[in-house]
Design a protein around this nucleic acid. Structure first.
Length: 704
DNA sequence: AATTTAGACTCAGAAAGTTGGGA
DNA sequence: CTCCCAACTTTCTGAGTCTAAAT
């Protein structure tokens, strides 16, 4: 294994200031990588420049951030010099909204206090609740997305709901597929308590079995998991059960049995497996599609989740709890008024409710038993246009940037914080970060950053280190605008009302994600924090794909694409664990390379011999030309293998899929494919080609 | 009227399952 | 040709965002 930075999950790479002189792209801070063109393209990189400032060769539509680095303040209005006049007409938004800003009105009565949270995330200040909404959508933003069709909805209860969007007129589907019932273990398979076999009821056995199969996972070493499980298991066991605690429980017989069953299944003959598969498909067939207004739409998910132990991601407070079985009585069905109500395999039970709500797209839903806040839904697959084509364009972005730059100079702490938060969201594509309860994993986003999550380093460096969505670590050191640096430093030290802050206090204590979204929405209909993530992902890809490349063969071009895709994934912090067996696979590849190189050498010897009119080794003599051809072919194979190996290693900690599916406007990719004569299928798999069918006839010169 | 809660999506990575291309 | 393994897909189960409704 190499010891390069690449072997670490990307979030853990330490970013040396470029001043230390590494030219290796991977050694540069993420933020630099994101916004910087290949070193080869422009020599040095803007090591000491603020976020987003690079020495790139400016593509005219690129964000101002990519403009010239001469001005350390990549943001001030001069940067808009790079924007064609035509795009600048709307520069007034920020000023306008600020003109109407009623400064420092009455103090906001304290906090959305989430009182009993051990003093954590509380808004502990009395900062004025800043920014008033600029009364209406500003004219600047009138090319926002077209109004959605809104129709009165007579189907729903009462007049209140009259103004919602109608999603369908006719809707027919077969409901949901329930998981198989629990099958009891053979009577000779029993768990042991204190060495003695224990008889369990069916219900108890099912729960025990859930635990048994986790024997070899490292959940067994997590006390919280064990405690949570025991609490629930205890309830199922009832009072005065022989089993008094987990310590003396031995689930080995159950585990072994489960493993044996698994092996048995694997060992089935081809025919048997096929038969099982066909049976399964036949059972599922009717659930797979829904009829929506005469169209056949694929149902995204029609399976009811089987019971099991809740795992959660990261250190989830509820890990190990029993997730009980879902029955029809728990499920609400949504279906067209005249359609037959779906059947279910539980005679005597009724669906919890059957609705005919035309304003939603789900077919069925139920409440999650563990994380009651959420519910699971079965709906049809969204396949329409790119969701994030929000109407946010370069000129809006410029306006918004000017607005938040102004906020840095505000006297009002809340506005300062708002300005900094927006800067991070725009530059680093952070998520909004809503407040969470204590029975959820302790993860944060931009608005919920704590003081301990940021560290101010010399030279306007800020180091972020926090757990984001799915408890994925975000670690990134970036150079920020000096004004932001000064503000963040201040926010780390004391709150708006001058109280000193503790590490676990909120960095932006005067505002939250809702405030931020409100501000954005007032600026432009349809604008929210997450739009920036999508927008920045797409614009980044677009910029990278327009960079000149000298790749000629398809594989090299695909590698170019993957590199661009990787940049986006890094921007969005889409990480994955290094696939198991990666090291082994790399070793194999290098062995193969070695072999290929030897073969090449052989061929070169053969060529020499051939040119002298001799045979080489025990082979028949071939024409020099034929040997030449063989050499070229071999070289091509080697080059291809080299590219593949490098790409593979390059991407081992980066998950490309998420951005490809959810963030990148497919038109960018399709256009690139056309320009570079790369077949679509090299980039999009079959599913994606289907999903993005609407983007396929885009103009090759399409610019995001 | 400010918060809280409900509701409806939208995004997430790992694991399981399937396929297909090369030795 | 066929078998094996890596690559690709789908499934699984969670976890965010954001708006609207309820308190």
């Amino acid at each position: 294994m190499s010891d390069s930075d690449d072997d670490m999950p990307l979030a853990q790479r330490t970013h040396k200031p470029a001043a230390e002189g590494s030219d290796d792209e991977d050694d540069r801070p993420l933020a630099h990588r994101q916004f910087t063109h290949k070193p080869s393209a422009n020599g040095n990189t803007a090591a000491a420049a603020p976020i987003g400032t690079t020495t790139s060769t400016a593509v005219s539509v690129s964000r101002p951030a990519t403009a010239d680095a001469t001005d350390l303040n990549g943001w001030d209005s001069s940067s808009s010099d790079d924007i064609p006049l035509a795009q600048r007409k709307k520069a007034l938004v920020a000023q306008k909204s600020q003109a109407t800003q009623p400064k420092g009105q009455k103090a906001k009565p304290v906090a959305k206090d989430i009182a009993n949270r051990e003093g954590k995330r509380k808004r502990q200040d009395e900062a004025p609740k800043g920014r008033q909404a600029p009364s209406k959508k500003t004219k600047a933003l009138d090319d926002a997305p077209p109004r959605k069709k809104r129709v009165a909805n007579p189907a729903s209860q009462g007049a209140k709901e009259e103004d919602k969007e109608i999603k369908w007129e006719k809707l027919r589907h077969a409901g949901v597929l329930f998981p198989p019932e629990y099958v009891r273990l053979p009577s000779n398979v029993k768990m042991l308590y204190d060495g003695q076999p224990v008889d369990l009821t069916e219900e108890q056995e099912e729960v025990a079995q859930m635990f048994a199969i986790m024997k070899e996972t490292d959940y067994m070493r997590k006390q919280l998991f064990l405690d949570n499980f025991w609490n629930d298991f205890k309830k199922v066991l009832g009072k005065d059960h022989v089993i008094k605690g987990l310590k003396k429980c031995d689930f080995t017989p159950m585990y072994d049995h489960a493993m044996a069953e698994r092996e048995k299944k694997k060992a089935l003959s081809k025919e048997e497996k096929l038969a099982i598969k066909q049976k399964k498909e036949a059972d599922e067939a009717k659930f797979k599609y829904a009829q929506v207004d005469g169209r056949t739409e694929q149902v995204g998910n029609f399976r009811v989740e089987p019971p099991g132990l809740f795992r959660g991601r990261g250190e989830h407070p509820r890990m190990g709890k029993v997730k009980s079985r879902i029955y029809p009585r728990d499920i609400t069905i949504n279906i067209g008024m005249e359609e037959p109500i779906p059947e279910h395999p539980y005679p005597g039970q009724q669906w919890k409710e059957v609705r005919h709500d035309k304003t939603v797209t789900w077919l069925a839903f139920w409440k999650e038993p563990i994380v009651r806040r959420t519910s699971s839904m079965c709906g049809w697959l969204p396949n329409s246009t790119f969701k994030s084509d929000s109407g946010l364009g370069q000129n809006h972005v410029d306006d918004i940037r000017k607005m938040y730059e102004k906020d840095w100079d505000s006297k009002d702490t809340q506005r300062q914080q708002m300005g900094c938060a927006l800067y991070f969201i725009d530059q680093l594509a952070l998520r909004a970060g809503h407040e969470k309860d204590e029975d959820e994993a302790d993860t944060v986003g931009c608005c919920t950053l704590k003081v301990e999550n940021v560290e101010c380093m010399p030279g306007d460096h800020i180091k972020f280190d926090f757990l984001g969505k799915d408890s994925i670590r975000y670690e990134n050191e970036v150079v920020v605008h000096p004004k932001v640096y000064a503000l963040i430093k201040k926010f780390c030290q004391h709150s708006a009302n001058n109280k000193p802050k503790k590490p676990e206090d909120q960095l932006f204590e005067t505002m939250d994600a809702t405030d931020l979204n409100k501000t954005l929405k007032d600026l432009m209909d349809g604008l929210s924090v997450k739009v920036f993530r999508t927008y920045n992902a797409s614009i980044t890809l677009d910029r990278l794909l327009w960079e000149p490349s000298d790749s000629e063969v398809i594989d090299a071009k695909k590698a170019d694409y993957d590199r661009a895709n990787k940049e986006v994934a890094i921007l969005c912090n889409h990480q994955r664990a290094v696939p198991k067996g990666h090291a082994g696979q790399m070793e194999k590849l290098s062995e193969r390379m070695h072999k290929l190189n030897e073969e090449l050498l052989e061929l070169q010897h053969e060529l020499k011999a051939s040119e002298k009119g001799k045979a080489y080794g025990d082979k028949k003599r071939r024409d020099p030309e034929r040997v030449h051809a063989a050499i070229d072919a071999k070289k091509a194979v080697i080059a291809k293998a080299e590219i593949n190996a490098r790409v593979k290693d390059d991407l081992k900690t980066v998950a490309l899929g998420t951005s490809k599916i959810n963030y990148l406007d497919p038109r960018i990719t399709v256009a690139w494919c056309k320009r570079n004569e790369v077949p679509m299928e090299k980039i999009f798999n079959k599913t994606l080609v289907t999903k993005f069918f609407w983007a396929m006839d885009v103009d090759p010169d399409f610019k995001f």
